[in-house]
Design a protein around this nucleic acid. Structure first.
Lengths: 237, 237
DNA sequence: TAATAGTATTTCTAATCAGTACCACTATAG
DNA sequence: CTATAGTGGTACTGATTAGAAATACTATTA
């Protein structure tokens, strides 16, 4: 995600994002100036600046001509955070309680939802988590793993030898990139493949039989690794 | 902001939001069922459910027919929060530094930007803040005022007698709803009117002369109030 | 044959954006 | 003094796209 996309994600249009960046590099300017410097058509430059003002990303400098000045990024981000918190509050206390029934087998499709679920499993784990992932995937969730270690969780990695994360128990195993195997708290598992958005699909399960099967498979894998090689235990600190 | 709008604000479409709520009240369902129960056209019900799955708000229950189950609200909110933090991080460390020049007089138009600026002034104040607002406006920013009191700021309210916020210094003054007068740290002021979006416009200023004028005006107002009435000082706790 | 499950296509609207035309004002070169 | 270039601003048109309503079509099952 680049800067422009991030600005679009918080509610600006593409042109507004462009103009916001332009306002940061220059003195306050009129729509005319903004149009000239950005290449955006005059009409759209004016409406873009007005849009920025409406969304709290720019303010007006009144005078003989109407100029706009950018609201500094930190302040704009504070606005957005405040707004986001309100939105989340509305959702969290407005949503009806989930019916208790939880299906034992769920399919999660698409790259992003899988990564989100993976991070959430690590974040929600209470005692321990086993991660059978290639180095590429470990890299994407490194902050979450580190937070889990700080929370005092037992974190076991089955991944390539060159990965080093303090506080984790590490078994060297060459994993195929994109293949995912996770167990959290001996109660939920996720497994499947993670490539681009279309070809990514994972099974998430709470089914006790499957979880047990998975646990034993991972335990066996670890046993075989320790028979071959020695354990690399990276101590905390 | 209602629930559906909040869900739309985090990236769902109106139909997806509707379907997400429906999924919460029922067992997992197919597009066919969702269409029947929501009144949404079949085609759109299917694409809506697929959209929810893509956005991490629903998961698939594989079987003879494809059913979708809602991801529980708390989990979906965690996804959104994670995503939002990433976006803010991109903006905050991607934005070029603001040029130091800050115009002395700025116009802030529109209801929302004004309220955001008001909250931000309170949040960013270092020592003291004077708020000349009607009870209606005080109500909107109550949490921010309470946080300021907790931060140990001197918070002075010039507002109607019935407003009660612990830890603030309160002078009873009947204010016209929509009229705003604020000074923060004796260095910045905001004043203007706040009604509906079109008719709302405020001046924000760092100009020392104007700030001083404003301070004296408020001091005089307080002096007159205390000559007439007695001070209501609500002690903390 | 009715209900279930799923797909495809058409139409409509609104937002975004590119492009252009037009008007008013000011400064200045000839 | 006038012509013209530059500045500041508004209005309109057209293309593209996402979202959504509506309908039609196929296939399977009870």
């Amino acid at each position: 995600m680049n800067l422009t996309e991030a600005l679009i994600a918080v509610g600006l249009t593409r042109l507004e994002a462009q103009l916001y960046l332009l306002l940061h590099s220059e003195e306050p300017m009129t729509g005319y100036e903004a149009s000239k410097q950005s290449g955006i058509s005059r009409s759209n430059a004016y409406s873009g600046l007005a849009g920025l003002a409406e969304k709290g990303a720019a303010v007006c400098v009144e005078g003989p001509v109407r100029q706009y000045s950018a609201v500094e990024a930190a302040e704009f981000c504070r606005y957005q955070s405040r707004r986001f918190k309100e939105i989340i509050a509305v959702i969290e206390d407005g949503m009806p309680e989930q019916r208790p029934a939880r299906e034992p087998f769920l399919t999660i499709s698409g790259r992003d939802p899988i990564i989100q679920k993976l991070k959430d499993m690590i974040g929600q784990a209470k005692q321990r988590i086993y991660l059978g992932l290639a180095a590429r995937e470990i890299g994407m969730i490194r902050p979450e793993i580190e937070t889990a270690v700080e929370r005092g969780l037992k974190v076991v990695l089955l991944t390539s030898a060159d990965v080093q994360i303090a506080g984790t128990i590490h078994y060297a195993a060459e994993k195929v990139p994109g293949q995912i195997r996770v167990i959290a708290d001996s109660s939920v598992i996720m497994t499947g493949t993670l490539h681009d958005d279309q070809t990514s699909s994972c099974l998430f399960s709470r089914d006790q039989a499957l979880v047990t099967l998975f646990k034993e498979a991972m335990a066996n894998e670890i046993k075989l690794i320790t028979m071959d090689q020695q354990i690399t235990h990276v101590d905390r600190d």
